[in-house]
Amino acid sequence: MSDINALFAQAHEEVQQLPERPGNLTLLRLYALYKQATKGDVQGDKPGFTDIVGKYKYEAWSALKGTEQDSAKQQYIELVESLKSGAAS
């Protein structure tokens, strides 16, 4: 396992143990980065207007289209670190 993968796995565990729940926009960013890092570019059809949460998740993930998986992992790690230090919310 490469260093980036180990750090990514550690960050994924740490984000679930944050003392405060991040705001919705930060949660969307975390979701999108995680999906891009683990699955690559967005897949499937965009949810319809009745699935608001699914629509926002899809759009957040879609905005990262073309981002390399290792780059998404690094951005995810950095975001988790900023959440842990209180720099982001």
Rank of each mutant, 00 (worst) to 15 (best):
52 I>L: 03
17 Q>Y: 10
75 Q>G: 09
22 P>N: 01
14 E>R: 13
41 D>H: 10
8 F>A: 11
59 E>H: 02
86 G>H: 00
27 L>A: 11
47 P>A: 03
80 V>H: 04
69 Q>F: 06
29 R>W: 14
15 V>F: 09
81 E>F: 01
89 S>T: 00
86 G>Y: 00
19 P>I: 14
78 E>M: 01
29 R>P: 11
62 S>M: 07
71 S>Q: 14
86 G>P: 08
16 Q>V: 11
80 V>G: 00
15 V>W: 05
40 G>P: 13
53 V>W: 06
21 R>W: 05
42 V>D: 07
84 K>E: 02
63 A>I: 01
59 E>R: 05
20 E>V: 13
8 F>T: 12
87 A>M: 04
20 E>A: 15
3 D>P: 00
67 T>N: 15
76 Y>R: 04
25 L>K: 13
35 K>A: 12
50 T>I: 01
11 A>H: 09
67 T>M: 15
64 L>C: 07
61 W>E: 03
82 S>F: 03
35 K>F: 08
34 Y>Q: 13
6 A>R: 12
84 K>A: 02
13 E>T: 07
3 D>Q: 09
89 S>K: 05
53 V>T: 07
63 A>E: 10
83 L>C: 01
88 A>W: 02
73 K>V: 06
84 K>I: 01
16 Q>G: 14
63 A>P: 10
13 E>K: 08
83 L>H: 02
46 K>W: 00
26 T>S: 12
15 V>I: 12
36 Q>Y: 08
69 Q>A: 14
10 Q>H: 06
54 G>R: 00
14 E>D: 09
70 D>W: 04
39 K>E: 12
22 P>S: 06
61 W>D: 03
46 K>Y: 04
40 G>N: 09
82 S>V: 05
41 D>Y: 08
57 K>G: 04
